[in-house]
Simulated scan of single mutants.
Amino acid sequence: MRESVAVVHDLVSRFAPADELGAEHRASALAWLASTDDVFRRVKPASPPQHLVSYVVPVAADGRILLVDHINAGLWLPPGGHVEVDEDPALTARREIQEELGLGDAGLSRSPTFLTITHTVGQDHGHTDVSLWYVLACTGDEELRPDAGEFNAVRWWTRAELAAADPGRFDPHLFRFLAVLDRDVMFDELNRRTGLERLRAGSDRFGPVAAVLFTPNGHLSVRAGCGGGYEVMILDDRGDPVAAGRTVDLDEIAGTMLDLHQEHSAADLAERHTYLAVSDPDVAIEALWHIITEHGEGSTVPIARAAAANPVLRRVWPWISHGTLNLYDRRDRPSLVKRGLAFHPAVGGFRVRPYGDGEIPAAEPAETAIARAAKIAASWDD
């Protein structure tokens, strides 16, 4: 493998995918990098037809995002450009923000934080970009010298403005990136406040998380809350939710993590941190359905919401594994499930398979899959 390609392969191999699509893009990029050294654009506009790109997302101290109205792409995009032959992608990032915006690289992240594979359709020939996304920390007051030949306009966007805009006017993965950015910022801050080695970002059994702390007695997950603040859930070593709550105070969450690390019980944690409440089974199940339907991965959210709307399925424990919605009887334990079923995505809908059933069922539309799953779950009471 060419040395410059090996550098990129190493970068990509160290990515922790934030969601199922991220895992697919990482696997595809690694396979591509292992199969060829022809990964840099050699000839404009698109030779080879798949090549590396470095994006740089300037982020202001108040959370605003700088985007450019790209003439060729016809979209609002992060600044950036194609990686030259044998160029380190980090050098590409530095070069592009200087050439395109006149910005320095003092706040540039040392490594990319996000990876995407996108087929582009601009004024030039369509091609596939394998993009490495870097973050540039800014004040938001920097003087900009945009390249008029590249951009119609350049502007800072607030999160509210982005949320209200037509998503079709942006890179198709921008909003996934912003979710990862928010989780990374929260993780970095919690890591600074706690210094706990077991703390990490990524996902738990119910979907993406900003930070998760594993201990011998269980784990604590933190998510950005619906409507602001942070949602915290504590699960015991069997995987059962034992306490949950919402707070806007990261110091409070950091304190909860430190106490959990010291092996305080759920009752102790709820007494010491009043935003938490000990969960009975009914409350716990409702909390898990909320996480999966409101904070889950895109591919599982529609079927999870349909299942949650069914009164029979709403009473059982939900969890996610490899893009599959799983349900099991509340009398079972996650480590020993006797009564459970899974919705396996398939062409034409889903295959509803009860645990322990070796038969591979036919795929069926979501509506009938939900009805059959409810019939199976109702039989667990017999």
Rank of each mutant, 00 (worst) to 15 (best):
Y230A: 07
L260V: 09
W319E: 13
L108H: 04
A266C: 07
L132V: 00
V278K: 07
D240G: 05
A371F: 01
P167Q: 14
A284R: 02
Y230G: 09
D236S: 10
N326P: 05
A46Y: 08
V347H: 14
R94H: 05
G227N: 12
T118E: 08
H261P: 10
R110Y: 06
R353I: 14
D182R: 11
V352A: 15
Q98T: 15
I360E: 10
R64M: 08
H119F: 03
D236P: 14
A308F: 11
E3F: 01
E367I: 14
V59F: 00
A287H: 13
V185N: 07
S279Q: 14
D259M: 13
S54W: 03
P354Q: 13
N72G: 11
S47H: 12
L77Q: 06
W76Y: 09
E197F: 15
R14W: 02
V8P: 00
E84P: 00
P365K: 14
R192K: 10
R110L: 09
A377T: 15
S265Y: 02
I234N: 03
R64V: 05
G228T: 10
R314A: 04
G140S: 09
F114Q: 04
P89H: 09
E143G: 03
E150A: 12
Q98W: 15
G104W: 02
R272P: 02
L115C: 10
H173A: 07
A153M: 04
R372C: 12
E87F: 05
Q123W: 00
G228C: 13
H119K: 12
D105I: 06
L235H: 10
F40L: 10
N217C: 13
V248S: 15
V185S: 08
G74T: 05
L260E: 06
T128V: 09
W133N: 00
W133T: 01
L33C: 08
E20T: 09
L181S: 00
W289K: 03
W32S: 12
V222M: 07
T256A: 14
V212R: 10
A306F: 02
E143V: 01
L250N: 05
A346V: 10
I97C: 04
V12S: 04
W32F: 15
L220N: 12
G22V: 04
L67S: 06
K338S: 13
E143H: 02
G298K: 02
A366T: 11
T324Q: 09
L77R: 02
W380R: 08
L276M: 11
H273E: 02
S35F: 10
E87P: 05
V43C: 02
R110C: 10
H290E: 08
G356M: 06
S131L: 04
